[in-house]
Simulated scan of single mutants.
Amino acid sequence: MGFLDNLKKGFTDARARASEEISRYKNKDVLQAIVAGCTYIAAADGEISSAEKSKMLGFLRSSPLTAIYGMDEVVKIFEENSKRFEFDHDSGRIEALRIIAKLKGKPEAGMLVRTCIVIGKADGDFDQNERRAVGEIARELDLNPADFDL
């Protein structure tokens, strides 16, 4: 098995584990935090590209949370978060972290960090901006980024 095959298998396995874990925590706060986290990762380099939007929506399309709340709700939440970042990056960042912090001290916190890592790796390049952003999310949740190999 070649390097690309291993990379693809690793991503597929991680995505399946994240989807399974998400299905255990079916509530609106989790949905909002996951979408806020995904938006935060997408904006890590200062802007949210069309490719990053597609990557995030593609991941969430297969999420058990989407089956509960519907893709329209996911898109609505993502667009609200994206607009905050587009209007003012710092305001978008602060609001996303406020939403994410609702999971602080809850079992869903680690799942959120792992989901953000999967989103960051979805294009095959988990760059330094994305790693830093996931580390910030982990710290916001009082989790140690090193526990997630960040």
Rank of each mutant, 00 (worst) to 15 (best):
C38K: 07
G105T: 02
Y40V: 06
G105V: 00
K83T: 14
D29I: 04
V118M: 08
G110T: 04
Q128R: 15
E86A: 09
I68C: 08
E80P: 05
D127K: 00
L31Y: 06
F78I: 10
F11S: 06
E20H: 05
R61C: 13
E136W: 04
K106Y: 07
N6F: 15
G70T: 05
G135M: 00
D5H: 11
G70Y: 01
A146W: 11
C116N: 04
V74E: 05
D123K: 00
G10V: 10
R17E: 14
D29A: 06
G124R: 00
K26F: 12
L143N: 01
A44S: 12
G37R: 07
L141M: 04
N129M: 11
G58S: 08
L112G: 01
D13R: 02
C38R: 05
G105R: 01
D127W: 00
P107T: 03
F85D: 10
F148P: 08
I94P: 10
G120S: 05
I48F: 05
L143V: 00
N129C: 11
D45M: 08
R139P: 08
K53V: 14
F85I: 03
R98I: 07
S54W: 04
A51I: 14
S54T: 15
I68W: 06
K104L: 07
P64G: 11
K106V: 00
I100L: 00
I94M: 14
E52S: 05
G46L: 04
H89F: 10
A109E: 06
E52G: 03
S19H: 15
G10N: 14
K104N: 13
F3E: 15
A43N: 09
F59E: 12
N129Q: 13
R84N: 10
I41N: 07
A33Q: 04
A67E: 15
G70E: 09
D125Y: 13
S91A: 13
A101R: 13
D5F: 09
A122V: 04
R84Y: 11
E20D: 11
P64Q: 06
D147E: 11
P107L: 01
F87R: 15
A96F: 07
T115L: 02
G37I: 08
A33C: 02
F126P: 08
M56Q: 13
L150V: 09
I34P: 01
L150E: 11
A96W: 10
D123M: 00
I99N: 01
K8H: 12
G37A: 02
Q32M: 14
A36W: 03
F59Y: 11
T39D: 10
G58L: 01
E20M: 10
L60I: 08
K102Y: 02
M1W: 12
E52Y: 00
A36L: 08
S23P: 04
F78Q: 12
N81R: 11
F11W: 11
L141D: 03
V74F: 02
L150F: 08
A44E: 06
I94V: 11
V75D: 07
A133Y: 02
